[in-house]
C-alpha cells in the first residue's frame, strides 16, 4: 500500500435533496420542515392499525408454529433454513408488539429470537425451551395479557425463565 492509499478523502457534496425540496442549497437558513399535523397523522396510522394486532400476531404465530413442527419432523438439511424463518417470525412478533405497545409479547419475542440464535435443535432440552416460548406466546395472545408488570405476566415470564435456566 503506498502513501496515497492512506490518504483520507473528504467529499463535500452539493445538497441535492434541498434543491429537490425547492430550497436553496447554499442558504443555511433554508430548512425543510414537515408540517406537525402530518406527523400527528402518521402516528394516527399506528393507532388505526392497532386493531389488526391480535389478528396479525395470530397469523405469524401460526406460521412460527408450523415452521417449528417442520423443523422437528423434516429432514436435517432444511433445519437451518427453518430455524432462520423462526428467528424472523419471532422478530416480527417483537416488532408488532413493540409498535402497538404490548410489552409482555415483546419480551417473549426478543427472548425467543435470542434463544434461536444459539439453539442446538438436537438437544431435547433446547426444544423444550422453544416450545415453552411458543406455548406462552399463545397464552399471552389468547388471554390478552398486555403488561409485563401484572401477576400473570410475572408467572409466565418466570415459567419460561425457569425452562431456560434448567435446560440451556
Amino acid at each position: 500500500m503506498n502513501s496515497s492509499d492512506n490518504k483520507i478523502e473528504l467529499y463535500n457534496r452539493v445538497n441535492r435533496l434541498k434543491l429537490k425540496a425547492g430550497l436553496s442549497h447554499t442558504d443555511p437558513n433554508a430548512k425543510l420542515r414537515i408540517d406537525p399535523s402530518t406527523i400527528d397523522k402518521a402516528d394516527s396510522i399506528i393507532e388505526k392499525k392497532a386493531e389488526a394486532y391480535p389478528v396479525e400476531v395470530k397469523r405469524v404465530l401460526k406460521v412460527l408454529d408450523n415452521n417449528w413442527a417442520k423443523a422437528q419432523s423434516g429432514d436435517r438439511q432444511s433445519v437451518p433454513m427453518l430455524m432462520e424463518k423462526i428467528y424472523h417470525n419471532a422478530n416480527q412478533i417483537k416488532d408488532l408488539a413493540s409498535t402497538f405497545n404490548y410489552p409482555l409479547m415483546q419480551h417473549f419475542g426478543i427472548s425467543l429470537r435470542e434463544f434461536v440464535e444459539k439453539i442446538d435443535i438436537n438437544k431435547g432440552a433446547h426444544r423444550t425451551i422453544v416450545e415453552a416460548h411458543i406455548d406462552v406466546m399463545w397464552v399471552v395472545l389468547n388471554e390478552n395479557v398486555h403488561d409485563e408488570g401484572d401477576e400473570r405476566a410475572q408467572k409466565l415470564k418466570s415459567l419460561v425463565q425457569k425452562a431456560i435456566n434448567k435446560y440451556s
Binding site: I8, E9, N15, L17
Partner: peptide, 17 residues
C-alpha cells in the same frame, strides 16, 4: 420525520479512509 429532516437539512461530508 426527524431522521428525514436531519438528512436533508444537516448532511455530513462523506469520508473515505
Amino acid at each position: 420525520a426527524d431522521r428525514i429532516l436531519h438528512i436533508v437539512n444537516h448532511p455530513r461530508a462523506f469520508v473515505k479512509t
